[in-house]
Design a protein around this nucleic acid. Structure first.
Length: 603
RNA sequence: GGAGGCGUGGUGCAGUGGUUAGCACACCGGUCUGUCACACCGGAGAUCGCGGGUUCAAGUCCCGUCGCCUCCGCCA
């Protein structure tokens, strides 16, 4: 390399006119005007225009006229102001241009499979096949730069708060509970396997037992589950743990960190402190444990108003301990019968017996309340005037709206109306504009949840989460009623982080294992090292983990975390570029004492 | 495991069962001395994802299959 960079393309301004610079980068575009050559040179900072006039620099022109898009070149030349009429206000460097006196080609390029400037519209599998070209796009360059800024701000904030960054193993042991593990066969122990960690959970607790007090890690985690737009098989957590703290200290530290980091990366301004909802309240009002507060409408409870209703569709559900809840859909009176029928089908698939709908305004058969709002509904004739008034009053339904109601078990009503709330937001554009961040804490999650498939209780968060002290007595008698010292941070309907205070008492941990149906022998086998550690003087401790990819996605305004990850996997957890996962040689398998049972043709 | 959408030159798309499968961008050649989405002229480039079926005739209709994306299940 003969020409060594002295300046970045995107930095050049009119003040640089007269100076000599050496630029390196990629040919972004080349325009030939019958000899006069305009070449846009691109590096990671932006574009700079080179001008090469054959009449002024013949030898260099002979060389440059054959340059093609995406070649890598270096040029040395003088910066000069452009003529007044040929300045380009659309370009940060549009005031100036460079007239090279020396040039060097570093690498030629074949025609590209897709244009760098149109990459975003190209099918994603092709983008991933040539990810190194896709990543040249300014959008992705910007996303990964933003991710760097975000990550650095996290490190700076935690360092200033006295946290040590400590690494933990990626080859660890498989633990029951949670997601499917990625397994790694152990050559040195035939028939035995490591697992890649789903999170550094146990290690960070052990670091607290070890006395580090404040730990964090930008930790890679693995979960072998099906993918989504916001889920990858390997992803990155901002993993945090603190000793001698309760929920308040963890939440304060965590929201300060997010406020600082996202403020740096995306100039997001979050309220201080963040609003909070209990899990029970979130489920009742929004039908979700990760409510999207950009949507203005809430779910209304009408159980009390319908306690003595004549209508069996509602009364039956209420009588057997269920609830009647309703959601106003602004503009929903425009819903066609076909759409309402489709919603009813969806509601049934989510476990509801049915979906009651009321269209307000227009030519309804019933007029309700002092304002005489017209109501159209197949079940209006079964309801009294007072009941219809209560329905409209509680939901604030106005002409032009629809009111959708579900009478069912509490959890079913929440699930159906929570889903309908999101559906209505899509259908009628009920969300606040893009760029708004509605962040909150959801607290007091249940500790345990009944799993009908396994026939036992499972941990809602994880098995090491501490119950709330005042609910302890219920652990053996009414496990589902025990609340956890757990908290999630939710932004715009996405869970971006979650954590808990952990159990630091060996006896308490044993009680929770018992509630989970994990036998003493099993607990000793799988978690013996943790129980042992807790018996040697463990501090009260707790922590939280944030999905760095999701935070970066939200800061970048991206639609998928793949756009903030340099080399992501596709929906089948494969990498079209490297061909991973791939078959391996029989010899490799023999070394690991493994024989494949995959159907022939699939190796 | 289930549902939906998509699959046509390198890329993005169009294409009433019936001529030589069309357009834009990219690519190649040419003209042009102030462009920056340069403009203009010309050229090359496709077994219409794959397999089967219906038909005188299939990119188009039917069945199957594969791939990609989204959602549900799943993800402590």
């Amino acid at each position: 390399m003969r020409l060594e960079r002295s300046a970045w393309c995107g930095d050049l301004r009119s003040a640089d006119a007269g100076s000599e610079v050496t630029l390196c980068g990629w040919v972004d575009s080349a325009r030939d005007h019958g000899g006069l050559l305009f070449i846009d040179l691109r590096d990671r900072t932006g574009l700079a225009q080179l001008v090469i006039d054959p009449l002024r620099s013949g030898a260099l022109w002979e060389q440059a006229k054959d340059w093609r898009v995406e070649w890598t070149v270096g040029v040395r030349g003088s910066v000069r102001l452009r003529q007044e009429q040929s300045r380009n206000p659309k370009l940060p460097t549009g005031e100036v241009e460079i007239e090279p006196v020396d040039a060097e080609v570093y690498g030629r390029a074949r025609p590209l499979p897709f244009g760098i400037d149109v990459g975003g519209e190209v099918e994603e599998s092709i983008r991933l096949r040539y990810r190194y070209l896709d990543l040249r796009r300014p959008v992705l360059q910007g996303n990964l730069r933003l991710r760097h800024v975000l990550t650095k701000a996290v490190r700076d904030h935690l360092d200033a708060a006295g946290f040590y960054e400590i690494e933990t193993p990626t080859l660890t042991r498989s633990t029951p509970e949670g997601a499917r593990d990625y397994l790694v066969p152990a050559r040195t122990a035939p028939g035995h396997f490591y697992a890649l960690p789903q999170s550094p959970q146990l290690y960070k607790q052990l670091l607290m037992v070890a006395g580090f007090e404040r730990y964090f890690q930008i930790a890679r985690c693995w979960r072998d589950e099906d993918l989504r737009a916001d889920r990858q098989p390997e992803f990155t957590q901002i993993d945090i743990e603190m000793s001698f703290v309760g929920p308040e200290q963890v939440m304060t530290l965590a929201e300060d960190m997010v406020r600082h980091a996202c403020g740096k990366a995306a100039r997001v301004v979050l309220p201080d402190p963040l609003p909070r909802l209990t899990y029970a309240e979130a489920m009742a009002r929004f039908g979700s444990d990760k409510p999207d507060l950009r949507i203005g409408v809430e779910i209304a409870d009408l159980t009390a108003a319908f306690l003595s209703t004549e209508f069996k569709g509602f009364g039956g559900a209420i009588g057997s301990g269920g609830v009647l809840r309703a959601l106003r859909v602004p503009g929903g009176a425009a819903l066609a019968r076909r759409e309402l029928d489709a919603l009813t089908v969806e509601a049934r698939q989510r476990g509801a017996g049915g979906l009651a709908w009321f269209l307000l305004g227009g030519e309804g058969e019933r007029r309700v309340g002092a304002a005489g709002v017209a109501v159209r509904s197949p079940i209006a004739k079964f309801l009294s005037d007072g009941e219809l008034e209560a329905l409209l009053g509680a939901t604030a339904g106005r002409p032009g709206d629809a009111v959708l109601a579900v009478a069912d078990r509490r959890d079913v009503a929440a699930a159906v109306l929570g889903w309908l709330r999101l559906w209505a937001a899509d259908r009628f554009g009920l969300r606040e504009s893009e760029g708004v961040w509605r962040a909150l804490w959801v607290t007091d999650f249940p500790l345990l949840q009944w799993d009908p498939d396994q026939g036992r209780f499972v941990a809602v968060h994880h098995p090491f989460t501490a119950p709330r002290a005042e609910d302890l007595a219920l652990l053996e008698t009414e496990p589902a009623a025990v609340r956890a010292q757990a908290y999630d941070m939710v932004v715009n309907g996405t869970e971006v982080g979650g954590g808990s205070i952990r159990i630091h008492d060996r006896a308490m941990q044993a009680r929770v294992f018992a509630a989970l149906g994990i036998s003493d022998a099993d607990a000793a086998d799988k978690f013996g090292f943790l129980l042992e550690a807790l018996s040697f003087g463990a501090p009260p401790h707790g922590g939280i983990a944030f999905g760095l990819d999701r935070l970066a996605m939200m800061c970048a305004g991206a639609d998928t975390i793949r756009d903030v990850i340099a080399f992501p996997k596709n929906a089948r957890a494969g990498d079209p570029m490297t061909g991973a996962p791939s078959v391996v040689s029989p010899g490799q398998l023999r070394d690991l004492f493994i024989r494949s049972l995959a159907p022939s043709g699939q190796a």
